[in-house]
Amino acid sequence: MVRAVADRAFLPAKSLFEQVGNMMILTGKTITAAIKPPYPYGGEFISQFLFALQLCWFPMMISTIAFGFGAPGLQAANFLSLFGALDRLGGFFILASVREFAPFVTAVVVAGVAGTAITADLGARKIREELDALQVLGVDPIKNLVVPRFLALMLITGLMDIYALLFGITGGIFAELAYGQPLGGFFATLFNNASVTDLWGSILKCTLFGAIIAVVCAYKGMNASGGAEGVGRAVNQAVVIAFLGVFAFNYVFTQTLLATHPEISVIK
């Protein structure tokens, strides 16, 4: 009785900590395997990169334009128009889009589109015992399967962030135009507030988002169990945990960036 109550109370927490610990270990093993020769994953890296690019480019374009136009665009423009300060929308886009929304939308799209594909792929291989077969054949699945996906997802999220910035700002331009404003003021405040720190911060953050998504999705895929239903469950869990991880990491990264670069807090 006591054991049953204790199990019910503590086992989920124990399982959570174990999973987080295992993901940390997988991250360590992945980084070690990526650095340590030999490097047999070149071909798989290119194929995974192109696969993720093919899957993500269109959803990214639609999501970032729509999001940029809708959330920071129309909503902020509505507010700024009260003060006759619609030209400030450009400056606001540095704050909103470059620092936050572009990396967020990129992470959400990459996790939902490419991350789930990784979990489903590795999960199906796990269920069919392909991963065990690889290991028995003396092939390290981390080096040959996880590392290329990890590197490909980091690169694709970093690059997709630039793509998201461009299309996100395009959404802002549409919002400015929707309010019948000339674009001169928008661009003036945009470039006035933009800094190199904002750009590298955004790209670095997004690249690390990619690492988090890759590790979570690979881990859940490689630990899928229970047939096809188990793979579905793993995909679902992977997305939820990846979002949690990304959002939690975003808080830590933003705090650190603002603390170490206070000049970017000044609104010009």
């Binding site: 199906a124 291989r125 069919r128 015992e129 392909e130 065990d132 077969a133 690889l134 290991q135 028995v136 054949l137 003396g138 092939v139 390290d140």
Partner: peptide, 19 residues
């Protein structure tokens, strides 16, 4: 372990072929 496994052949229940 990876080195040692080279001396093994394992036939899985369903073959575990790479799809």
């Amino acid at each position: 372990l990876f080195e040692m496994r080279k001396k093994f052949g394992l036939l899985f229940q369903d073959g575990a072929l790479f799809g």
